[in-house]
Design a protein around this nucleic acid. Structure first.
Lengths: 216, 216, 216, 216
DNA sequence: TATGAATGAGTTTTCATTCAT
DNA sequence: TATGAATGAAAACTCATTCAT
């Protein structure tokens, strides 16, 4: 699935080779697992010789980490792009949708970045990069909390809860189970907010009103 | 030509040895991962010779699967014990607490049963056992939905959402981050309910009506 | 965690290495037996590392089979070369001599191809190749039978009988007990014919006459 | 095939246990090969525990050798029983028939005693026992030669030739391909004689006459 | 005498990594 | 920069043998 376009042959752009290797590795790691992905397999899928891997990556492990960090950075970037205007809820929703778009475009990335299997395998530097993702999200949630939009409790915890539910959206999108406009997506995004949002409108007797506009 | 053992037999223990092996394997698999857990390592931890593993388990893979299924069964049992009386919310809360107790007692089981890394590695039979867990949970949620306690949307989705958040409790408990009486636990359990409970049901006695308009 | 080779690559040789492995294996299999021939032993004899075996043969078993089939093919080729002119007796004698030459050149091949130990171990494909040898020989005998040179009875049986006696020639030649010109060879070849040739044909038209004096 | 009669249980006659082990081993060695026959397998087939093997035989290797020698002795006995009266031809024929009877009764013995695989595996003592078989046969042939019945050439060679052909009878009988009265048996016995007998009767113009009655 | 759990050396096989070309 | 044959440590697994019971 998703083999990069086959290039005629010979005298390849070196950058190109590196990319082909990274893509092949990403695809294989996330479908077969790290150990089940052998270096001969990566090389074959990338259309290069086994030894060529080591011209571009110090080791198989380093290859995983580079692909991993690149993946995390993509999600972080989407997170940072989040429009500073708008309430916490709106911003989170925006993030969720951007992420969902990434998941639709690069399903393998979701399996790589949001899988405990890889998070556990990855080196300290990669873990730091991942922590950045978490930190950025917590910042967003903390701001919402300061604004009274988030319920009481640690911002980190709320970030965790929200993330766990949004991961469901990413997973189903990556798997192709849910298309971009599947109503379940909005449902989960709403549920994620319900799990962390301040109970204002909900405790009152007029439950849904302010949120109707939010729907979709 | 042959290879007589340098050191002969040693102990005596029928079920004991098997248990030691299972425990050692569980611990190692969940802390180091499947491939990083070598058979010599398991044997050493269990205090037996490497070959002894194979008197009790057909293969390393089978060892994983047996430990895995035993773990799943424990969670399923706790789920089935759930008091049939009481509303869906109460029953889910009961399940969450029983699971948290298991997590406190056997932290490794959480890492084994609720980790995609192992769920992906495990054989068909084990997967069937896991499906039972999911089915049981969905049954509970579906009943709640029929009673109007759960918001609209597929029961499976709600089961998923709830489970994802409760997994956070299990994870933190297994890690020892949260003790049994940590207030965060109740907070997450509440958040999990907020993510799937019918909105009105929480404020009033009349459950779902006003939220119909919310749909999509 | 991984296991980088302590000592790196070494030589350069495409077909050469494969041949060395095949020869070493042939020699060892036929002198020590299949199980007594370990892969480290084969590698050492071939002057390569153990892992190198698996770059050229899928498994130890496959190595045996490839060597085996190559051996059988050599004997089949000699059989097919058999001059179509001349009576059955002459042709059989020609085959026996060609085979004896092979046995002199490659003694190990005799032990490999004409040994029930290997015939039993070998895979279906190899067995088919061996059946070709038998079929070819039977064809030759059947032709002789049609020409009235072979005594009554199934051609397959006669082929079997002849082969069993010729195997003695091959075995003694392979062992070095009999040199190429040892009179025993002609004696066995004659005996083999006597065991299957039509009784009258020998008294008639000269062929047998000079041999009368040979008696005792 | 041919499992010895199942004995109820408990407190077995020790001699009996030893026999059961020997029989199980014989059967397994000859059908699966030495290495493919594991000690647990032998024990299971004999209906005893693994350790029990070592109460009766020093090692697996010793077990093989004891079974082997017992087998050889059986054939030697049949050879020695050979009626001293009668010509060499008659005596050889008698031996062949006695052996054929053994082959019919104990097919596994043929595969054990007349297989190069086992002959190569067996220890020096067993080889000596086998040499006795050969020596006895050579004695018989040498006597025939002295009487002018056997053609010129070394008696050992003639013994070898005759044996090789008779092995075919034993093999086919052991396999069940030929029943005791199969005409092929007489045919092979005749062929075996033709391969070594002095060419007297055959050079004459009256080839088959006296031998017709021999046929069966 | 019989048992069978335990042993560990030894087996085949894998695979990330190197380096001469 | 690219190649791919070669490497060898380490993996999972086997099995003849021992000995406490």
């Amino acid at each position: 699935m998703a083999h990069p376009p086959t290039v005629p042959a010979r005298k390849r752009n070196p950058r190109h080779t590196r990319d082909r290797l990274a893509r092949a590795a990403l695809e294989l790691f996330t479908t077969r697992g790290y150990h089940e992905t052998t270096t001969p397999l990566i090389a074959t899928r990338a259309g290069v010789a086994e030894g060529t891997i080591y011209r571009h990556f110090a080791s198989k492990d380093e290859l995983l980490n580079e692909v991993y960090r690149a993946g995390v950075r993509l999600f972080v970037a989407a997170l940072k792009e989040s429009d500073a205007r708008g309430g916490c809820r709106g911003r989170l929703e925006g993030v969720a949708k951007r992420w969902r778009d990434i998941a639709a475009r690069e399903p393998a990335l979701v399996r790589l970045v949001f899988s405990d299997a890889f998070t556990a395998r990855v080196d300290e530097r990669s873990r730091t990069t991942l922590r950045e993702l978490r930190a950025e999200l917590e910042k967003l949630v903390a701001a919402g909390k300061a604004a009274g939009e988030i319920r009481h409790g640690a911002a980190e915890l709320h970030a965790d809860l929200w993330l766990r539910l949004i991961e469901l959206v990413l997973d189903r999108t990556a798997r192709g189970t849910w298309k971009s406009d599947d109503p379940a997506i909005a449902q989960v995004i709403e549920a994620a907010w319900d799990a962390i949002g301040a109970p204002t409108g909900r405790t009152a007797l007029s439950p849904g009103a302010p949120r109707v506009e939010n729907a979709t």
